[in-house]
Design a protein around this nucleic acid. Structure first.
Lengths: 219, 219
DNA sequence: CTTGACAGTGAACAAGTTTTCATCGAACAT
DNA sequence: ATGTTCGATGAAAACTTGTTCACTGTCAAG
């Protein structure tokens, strides 16, 4: 896939953020104002580029109507798996304490998960922030509904080496997605828990940010 | 809150479904076509009604731009309810930060998380400890299975004044239980979300420790 | 019977938005 | 030098969409 230019990426991010915040898409003029274009046509070109590069789908003629195209699938071959912490947009749980019990028999998360345990983690080089142990991600989209992980849920992700069948947060084409990891011999791919979605076969490299251990739902 | 008419409900549902499927809102004319109105004004009236009844927020002038206001179960009655924090043995989540989201798609239109937001809470009077913001409880038993809260799950409980229909952590006879709070006129009782369990009608007093806002499940 | 609220028609308007057209300068390869 | 692409301007066209106005029918309450 063609790479996005810096401005295209910025515009795409802004659009996503706008949707996330306001629950509706920005108009071209909204984007124009945000990026101080003198003409709507400046934006227009970028939107065309975003569509041509396959990351955004416009609905012709309709106002404030777009779709984000989930990134593409590539060819199958042996894949290099890289492990990496959460991206910039995923800020960690910090110092999450969990202790005590109520009315007998409080959970023993210390052994079984460790997710909620407060933990001192060494600083990553060059970083002032403490390296996060676990982090939370808000789920959007419905690609995991068959695993009962739905839009709006929050998953707690732990770094680690995933096994076959684990649900992982993976970085594909610059975007974090939540999928089930399938290892078949030397082949590795990601499977959405939704029959309507195709498998995601990584092109060259696959970056795993961590393993989803828990899911948190609003009541 | 005012009840929605059948058609208003249908329209609201259609709008939600449209967003869910297409990731952008329908225009008034889309709705008109769907419900075979002969005039856009038929839809317009319903949208006004939906806004007046507080379940939908329109963005004036903007096309395909709405927000869904989370619906609340009404009924405010006055009852002898005491509110109390968690017991000594249930220690709070502290400084839980949250940010970021996963993949692209449309946002959660029902509600935002909030639960996990870090928050400074003022000291309660006479207390040196900071009042805990939220705390976690491990669920035992199957009294809430119809609300999809199962044995072994963890619920995040926030202090606050519960409304009719909220799931609350209540202290009854010295034990904390998780039940749905039902207010009917002046009567207040607790309802298990499991048909095999009877309602729990408090004898003298009812102590609410907080409102269950989220449930956390192991994957 | 009348009144008023509710739901709807039909048409038109005004504003919001996308899209097209003509043009320009800089970067860049031919 | 020359053509090409890219990012941008400025203006205008064309379409989409929310909004308003005038009017009709229904139905229940007073």
């Amino acid at each position: 896939m063609e790479e996005l230019t810096k401005k295209q990426r910025a515009i795409l991010d802004y659009m996503k953020a706008h949707v996330s915040e306001h629950s509706y898409w920005p108009s071209i003029r909204d984007i124009q104002a945000k990026f101080r274009f003198a003409s709507t046509n400046g934006v227009y070109g970028h939107l065309q580029a975003l569509e041509r590069k396959g990351v955004l789908q416009r609905i012709p003629g309709a106002a404030r109507a777009y779709k984000i195209v989930p990134e593409v699938l590539g060819d199958t071959s042996e894949t290099v798996i890289r492990y990496e912490g959460p991206g910039d947009d995923a800020i960690a749980f910090e110092n999450v304490k969990f202790a005590g019990s109520i009315a007998a028999g409080f959970p023993d998360y210390t052994e079984s998960s460790g997710v909620l345990d407060s933990m001192q983690v060494p600083l990553s080089p060059g970083s002032r922030r403490r390296a996060p142990e676990s982090f939370a991600l808000r789920v959007r989209g419905d690609s995991m509904i068959d695993a009962d992980i739905n839009d709006g849920d929050t998953v707690i992700v732990e770094p680690g080496t995933p096994k076959h069948g684990d649900i992982v947060a993976a970085l594909i084409d610059g975007e974090t997605t939540l999928k089930r990891l399938i290892k078949q011999g030397s082949k590795v791919y990601l499977k959405a828990e939704n029959k309507n979605y195709p498998d995601l076969i990584p092109t060259s490299s696959l970056t795993i940010q961590g393993i989803a251990k828990s899911v948190m739902k609003r009541i």
